[in-house]
Design a binder for these strands. Structure first.
Lengths: 156, 156
DNA sequence: ATTGAAATATGTTCGTA
DNA sequence: TACGAACATATTTCAAT
């Protein structure tokens, strides 16, 4: 279990730093420094503080999957047999690269996934061949994202 | 509408570059260059090609919302009245910072959202005060993520 | 597509306030 | 916390292959 500092205090300068880097992880520190009016060394030190607190958990290049032909996003609710260990099912889901998110959830479904496929045929294969074949999966319910309108992180 | 090049060809070197930067957006180009055994200038040029193709759509610092006390993630299915313009509902959802994702979907729900709140009370406020008050929203169905087990991008 | 070299810009550390 | 100076690295461009 990761230790996390819940007592972190972030001020307006921290927010400006974070907003710049959440927008573009490669924004130069010195550019941010010029923007907020303090030295690069100070920004550097604040970033170290923010990393140490665990608030910054990393950085990523964001890929546009459509360019690779991945145009079908779907959500899948999974019903698991009572006796089955959920972690074992998750372990199997991790092996399916099309599964981008996976949650234990309240409600009817035991597990809820977001998956990304090239097309409906690909989606069908992932459902029938990869997911339905996992031991303990009794039934699934699928709905397709026709268009994603919002995609963002928490507001800082 | 964004123009996207679907004929992009990416080879093993491109994949190594992308994997490194998807893992850590601030990986130095020269470090990648040393890793794959070509010059920094060549990596630089390939990155420009990948950006131009639209495959790379940006970069982000990733924030761990738990550090800020955001511990309750939930999914919300929204039923909209027939007569209501969906884009108008989405426009209102965009104003709610807790809404991280929003999709038009097939199935029973018109709109499907992922939201992130501090706790159940906060979630209840977002549901009752912010979402239910949107014109055209007739009913919602909510389920909570007890634990997210998978979070990743498409495999390159 | 790739290279090396040159010019520019940035990252990082450290002593000091 | 913040600063500036000094040093180490990285980015970017370019002519040549």
């Amino acid at each position: 279990m990761k230790i996390v500092n819940h007592n972190i205090q972030i001020d307006g300068i921290d927010k400006k730093i974070l907003r710049a880097l959440m927008e573009d992880a490669r924004t130069p520190i010195l550019e941010i420094a010029r923007g907020v009016g303090i030295s690069g060394a100070a920004i550097h030190q604040r970033l170290r503080k923010l990393e140490k607190s665990g608030l910054i958990s990393g950085s990523k290049f964001v890929i546009n999957p459509k360019v690779l032909g991945y145009t079908t996003m779907a959500f899948i609710g999974i019903f698991l047999d009572k006796a089955i260990s959920n972690p074992e099912a998750v372990k199997q889901l991790k092996k399916i690269p099309e599964v981008l998110e996976c949650h234990y959830t309240t409600g009817n479904w035991s597990i809820f996934c977001k998956i990304l496929c090239k097309d409906n045929e690909h989606l069908m294969h992932v459902l029938n061949r990869d997911i339905q074949s996992i031991t303990g999966v009794s039934r699934t319910e699928t709905f397709i994202s026709l268009d994603q309108q919002i995609e963002r992180q928490i507001k800082i």
